[in-house]
Amino acid sequence: MTGCQKLETHEIEPSKKRKWLTKKRLKLKRKREKSKRKDANKKDPRRIRPKGLKKKQNFPTAEARIKYKIEKAKLKEAMLVEKLKKYEVPEVQGPMVKPEELTGEERFYVKKMAQKKSNYVPIGRRGIFGGVILNMHLHWKKHETVKVICKPCKPGQVHEYARELERLSGGVAIQVIGNDTIVFYRGKNYVQPEVMSPIDTLSKKKALEKSKYEQSLETVRRFIAISEKELELYYRHVALYGNPQTRNADLELIFSKEERVCSSDHCDVSEDFSGMEVDSDYEFDSNEREFTEDETDSDVEEESNCQVDLEDGEEEFEVPKYPA
């Protein structure tokens, strides 16, 4: 067919309608983000407190204030313990796998091999969860050993992690380096399991929530211990020096008595002076002679210029002049 015309093709530009956010869409986007943050903050353990409005209270004594703080902290502690019960995972019941026994030479060889390699699995604030075991199995696919590094690790917690990881992964803990590193060996007859994340472990999200509650619980318990110590010190202070409120009242009473005594003495003195009578016969003579500077100087000069009449046979004595 010679008379057929070719169809023309035109490229259609994509719509620019939603390319830029309008003012309304930007507001809606920010509103959605704000609602997400609010939902996330509701689960934050720092917001957990006993129900009811927060009231500002005035306490009569320091003892009442400390006791109120301890009582409130213990309520929060009980609430956190209840929350943590949701994250407890029961251990899977089944036959226990015995760890492989290695000779001294084999252990030495595995340690040297682990030192040369740099592959590792980190354990952070979430602790041990399914992702850690999964990463260990993925490392064991190509390497015989793997290092597990626990960064926020308390003293003595490394050995607990080592026992737990041995149970969950089926590997052998060869060496504990310092307070934060464990070397694991996969075993001689290692076979990668089909399910590499054990059932009796938490997910990544739940492990983070659990770590937040645990951190909050630890802080609350530390606060309770400090408050109880403060209360004990207060009782000791009262036993030694007495109640500060009664002592202040006694001091105020003493000061008030002293002020009364002082005021009464002042009144008596003023009365004594007011009762004195001035002698009317005594008159101050304003014409009494007063010495001036000129007169005193002239008197001194006259005394210095006066000559003493010497008797016969007496020699005149000159007064030595010393330098000024």
Score class of each variant (00 low, 15 high):
T22R: 02
K206R: 14
E101P: 00
A78C: 00
Y235L: 14
G124A: 04
K188C: 01
R222S: 14
A173N: 06
L28Y: 11
G178K: 06
K69L: 11
E214T: 11
F108D: 08
V158E: 13
S227M: 15
P323L: 15
S216V: 08
Q115T: 04
V97K: 05
K147C: 01
L208M: 11
S169N: 10
E100K: 05
E302I: 04
S298L: 03
K55V: 08
K36P: 00
V238I: 15
I177V: 09
R65H: 07
E33P: 07
K19C: 09
D200W: 09
P152F: 11
E302N: 07
F223H: 15
A249D: 06
R37N: 07
L202R: 03
F223Y: 12
L165P: 01
I199R: 14
K19N: 09
T22I: 02
F284A: 06
E33H: 12
D39E: 13
N119H: 05
E91S: 02
C150L: 07
K206A: 10
K67L: 13
A239S: 15
H237Q: 12
C153R: 02
S203G: 15
E194D: 11
G52V: 04
L202A: 03
Y322E: 08
D200L: 05
K141N: 05
E105H: 01
V183F: 03
Y241F: 14
T2L: 14
E314P: 00
Q57H: 11
A162W: 04
V261I: 13
S270N: 10
E258P: 03
L80T: 02
E13W: 14
F291G: 00
E303P: 00
M113I: 03
E77H: 07
D39H: 11
D281M: 06
P45S: 03
E259Y: 12
T103G: 11
T9Y: 15
N119Y: 05
D309W: 07
V158A: 13
Y234G: 00
Y87K: 02
C4W: 11
E290D: 00
R222T: 13
E228T: 04
K257P: 12
C4T: 12
K321T: 06
